[in-house]
Computed example of a mutant assay.
Amino acid sequence: MNSQASLPKKVKIVEVGPRDGLQNEKETISAEVKIELVDRLSRAGFSNVEAASFVSPKWVPQMATSTEVMARITRLPGTIYSALTPNMQGFEAALAAKADEVVIFGSASEAFSQKNINCSIAESIARFEPVAKAAKANGLRLRGSISTAFGCPYQGEVPLTAVADVVRRMRDLGCDEIDIADTIGVSTARKTQEVMLAASREFPLQQLSGHFHDTYGQALANIYASLEVGVQIFHSSVSGLGGCPYAKGATGNVATEDVLYLLHGLGIETGIDLDQVVDAGQFISQQLGRKGSSRAGNAIAAKRLG
């Protein structure tokens, strides 16, 4: 175990609740609620908020209001507002909506790629070439997201070489940041370190991010394990928004409040106000008519009530 002194002094949190967290909600959420959520998160101090997704509303109906959301949020200087762009049509919409960063996505698992987007990994990366070129030509940040990097619901184990290969392909497209995602939340601490180190041999560690799901309750342990090897960017979702479609009833994204409680307890700087994030989490949970799944968020909210 490395000493605490070797942990990063500062960490960037990418808040993915408004996009990744809400996209699978069955009930339609109004643009007003999404705008309010993004604005609350901006005010809490996040330097990067994933706010929209320009995929076909046929596939993700919840994201049909993305253009309106991007037009009406209160943008704070220095905050990056990201949008998911699966193709050139999505990119054009993101560009028109003044996204600061576009996100392209691939998989480290061939089986997942085929089931999820009906093509091979190589084909999926090739599809993103024009999007990547256009992003660079228009001066936008480009982020690559690699799903099932720690395990796949269809093929099980995902070799380290497969992860490194997709990282290399994303790097060659010109990505500024690459997310290594545990889509089904199966990783454990040592495995997490192996995957992150394998990825870092192809791309600068400072620009790699950990995107952990909490399906098996391992997300915080995996974040700590990532900190130990020098990862400085993590994704999380306010109030633990977002289920895991491959594990019935399971939680999805790790809750932002829990991550902040851990990081602040370690003396790691985030620039984010935990109390304001708890407020945002309580707000969106009330809008959805259910209790949030953040342990820290719920504990802090309960403590306030005395």
Rank of each mutant, 00 (worst) to 15 (best):
F112M: 02
Y216K: 13
Q276K: 15
S113P: 03
Q276G: 04
F128S: 13
D273S: 06
S285I: 08
Q62V: 04
I180N: 07
Y261H: 15
V277H: 11
F203Y: 03
K291G: 13
S6H: 11
R290I: 07
G265L: 05
A132F: 06
T215A: 11
L288D: 06
E15R: 04
G174E: 10
E36V: 07
T192C: 15
K26Q: 13
F203I: 12
K291F: 04
P61V: 02
P86W: 11
I272N: 01
A52V: 08
M170Q: 10
A164L: 10
T74M: 03
G240C: 03
L288F: 07
A137Y: 01
E50S: 04
D39E: 06
T188A: 11
L205G: 00
T192L: 03
D100H: 13
P77C: 02
I117Q: 12
I125E: 00
I300G: 00
G289E: 09
A122L: 08
I125W: 10
T148D: 04
A97Q: 12
F203S: 02
V167K: 03
D165I: 01
K115N: 15
N116P: 11
C244A: 04
L260I: 04
L22Q: 09
T85R: 00
F234T: 02
N298H: 11
G217L: 12
E228H: 08
L205E: 03
A164K: 00
G90S: 05
F46N: 04
D172Y: 09
P18W: 07
R290A: 10
A64L: 05
S200M: 02
L274D: 10
Q282H: 09
A99K: 09
S47N: 05
E157P: 01
G230W: 14
L41C: 06
Q206Y: 05
N253S: 06
I272S: 04
S56G: 03
A302T: 11
I284Q: 06
V38K: 02
E257V: 00
A96K: 15
R190H: 09
Q232K: 15
N48S: 12
G292Y: 12
S3N: 10
P153H: 11
L241S: 10
F283Y: 15
V131I: 10
V238K: 01
L266S: 02
G210E: 12
V60I: 15
G78Q: 12
S226W: 11
S294M: 02
A280P: 09
R43D: 14
P8N: 13
E50V: 09
N253Y: 12
A255D: 07
K303Q: 14
